Deep mutational scan, measured.
Amino acid sequence: ICKIPGCTKRYTDPSSLRKHVKTVH
Score class of each variant (00 low, 15 high):
V21E: 13
C7E: 06
Y11V: 09
T23L: 08
R10I: 09
H25Q: 04
I4N: 13
T23F: 06
L17N: 04
S16C: 10
R10K: 14
L17D: 11
K3H: 12
G6L: 02
D13H: 03
S16L: 13
K9C: 09
Y11Q: 08
I4C: 07
V24R: 07
L17V: 04
I1R: 00
G6A: 03
R10Q: 12
C2S: 05
R18M: 15
S15M: 10
V21L: 07
Y11R: 03
I4V: 08
V21I: 06
C7F: 00
C7V: 02
G6W: 01
T12L: 04
R18V: 14
H25D: 05
R18I: 12
I1D: 11
T8H: 11
K3L: 07
S15T: 10
K3Y: 14
R18K: 14
D13Q: 02
S15W: 06
T23C: 07
Y11C: 15
H20E: 09
K19I: 11
H20M: 03
T12C: 07
V24Q: 13
T23E: 14
S16R: 08
Y11T: 11
H25K: 01
K3A: 04
K19D: 15
I4G: 05
V24A: 14
T12A: 12
P5V: 06
I4H: 14
K3E: 11
L17K: 01
K19S: 13
T23K: 08
K3G: 07
S15N: 12
D13M: 03
S16Y: 05
I1M: 07
S16Q: 13
V24N: 10
P14K: 07
I4Y: 12
D13E: 11
C7I: 00
K19H: 13
C2F: 03
S15D: 15
D13K: 00
P5S: 10
S15K: 14
P14Q: 14
Y11E: 10
T12W: 04
H20R: 00
Y11I: 11
C2H: 03
P14F: 10
V24H: 12
K3I: 10
S16K: 12
L17I: 02
I1W: 00
P14V: 10
I1F: 05
V21F: 02
R18Y: 07
V24K: 10
P14G: 09
T12Y: 03
R10P: 05
H20Q: 09
V21H: 09
C7Y: 03
I4D: 08
V24I: 07
I1G: 02
K19V: 11
I1A: 02
V24D: 15
H25C: 04
Y11A: 07
H25Y: 00
T8N: 10
I4S: 08
T8A: 07
T23M: 09
K9R: 06
I4P: 02
D13A: 01
H20T: 03
K9G: 09
R10V: 13
G6Q: 02
R18L: 13
K19L: 13
P14N: 06
G6T: 01
Y11G: 08
C2M: 05
P14I: 05
R10A: 14
S15C: 10
T8G: 12
K3P: 09
P5A: 07
H25R: 01
G6D: 11
T12V: 05
R18N: 15
T23G: 07
I4Q: 08
K3W: 08
S16V: 11
S16D: 15
K19E: 15
K19Y: 13
C2Q: 06
T8L: 10
S15Q: 15
D13N: 08
V21S: 06
T8W: 00
L17F: 04
G6E: 07
R10Y: 08
T23W: 05
P5E: 13
C7N: 05
G6M: 03
V21A: 15
C7K: 01
I4K: 01
R18S: 15
I1H: 01
H25S: 04
R18Q: 14
S15L: 07
P5G: 08
I4R: 00
R18P: 09
V21M: 10
T12R: 05
R10E: 15
K3V: 08
V24L: 03
K3R: 06
H25G: 05
K9H: 09
R10G: 13
C2K: 00
P14S: 11
H20V: 01
T12H: 03
I4A: 06
G6R: 00
T23I: 09
K19M: 15
S16I: 08
V24E: 15
K22E: 15
P5Y: 02
C2Y: 04
K9W: 12
T23A: 11
G6S: 02
T12G: 13
T8I: 09
S16P: 05
C2I: 02
G6Y: 01
C2T: 06
P14L: 12
P14Y: 12
S15G: 13
G6H: 02
T23N: 10
T8C: 12
K19P: 04
K22G: 10
C2N: 06
K22L: 14
K9M: 09
V24T: 11
T8P: 03
K22M: 13
H25T: 05
R10F: 08
H25P: 05
K9D: 10
V21P: 05
V21C: 04
D13T: 06
I1E: 10
G6C: 00
G6K: 00
K9E: 09
P14T: 09
T23P: 07
P14C: 08
V24M: 07
K22H: 11
C7P: 02
C7Q: 02
